[in-house]
Simulated scan of single mutants.
Amino acid sequence: MTSPEFRRTITLRRRDMDELGHANQAAYHEFLEEARAAFIADLGVPDARPDAYVLARVELDYRREVRLAHGTVDVVVRVERVGGRSLTLGHDVLQPDGTVAATGRTVIVGWDGEGRCARDLTPGEHAALAAHAT
Rank of each mutant, 00 (worst) to 15 (best):
Y28D: 10
D61F: 05
A52Q: 02
L87H: 01
E59N: 06
V82L: 10
S3C: 10
R105T: 15
D16L: 15
T72N: 02
A101E: 01
A127N: 06
L32V: 06
R119A: 12
L32D: 02
T72L: 01
T72Q: 06
H70Y: 03
G83V: 06
G84I: 07
R15Y: 02
G104N: 13
V54T: 04
I10Q: 04
H70A: 10
R36A: 03
R119V: 10
D74W: 06
G98Q: 04
D51L: 10
A35E: 09
R49L: 11
N24F: 12
T103R: 14
D42R: 05
R36N: 07
A52M: 02
D16K: 08
G115S: 10
R67Q: 15
N24W: 13
G71I: 09
A37C: 14
A37N: 13
A37Y: 08
D120C: 08
R67F: 00
E5F: 11
D51E: 12
V109M: 06
I108R: 03
A23N: 10
S86Q: 02
P123T: 11
R78D: 01
V77N: 07
P96K: 11
Y28I: 14
T99P: 10
F31K: 04
P4C: 09
D74K: 07
A41K: 11
L32S: 05
Y53V: 07
V109F: 06
E125C: 12
T122M: 09
L68D: 03
V66H: 00
R49Q: 04
H91V: 01
D120G: 08
V73Y: 00
V109C: 13
M1E: 05
L60C: 11
R81T: 01
L20E: 05
P96F: 07
V100A: 06
T88C: 13
R15C: 04
E34R: 14
E34T: 13
F39T: 00
L129R: 00
C117Q: 13
S3K: 14
R63V: 07
T11G: 14
L87E: 00
R85N: 01
R85L: 12
G44I: 06
A128G: 02
A133I: 09
T103F: 08
T134A: 14
E30S: 14
D97T: 07
V66L: 00
G113D: 12
D42V: 10
V66W: 01
G84S: 11
D112K: 02
V58E: 12
T11D: 15
E30C: 14
G104Y: 13
T122K: 13
R15T: 04
E33S: 08
D97G: 04
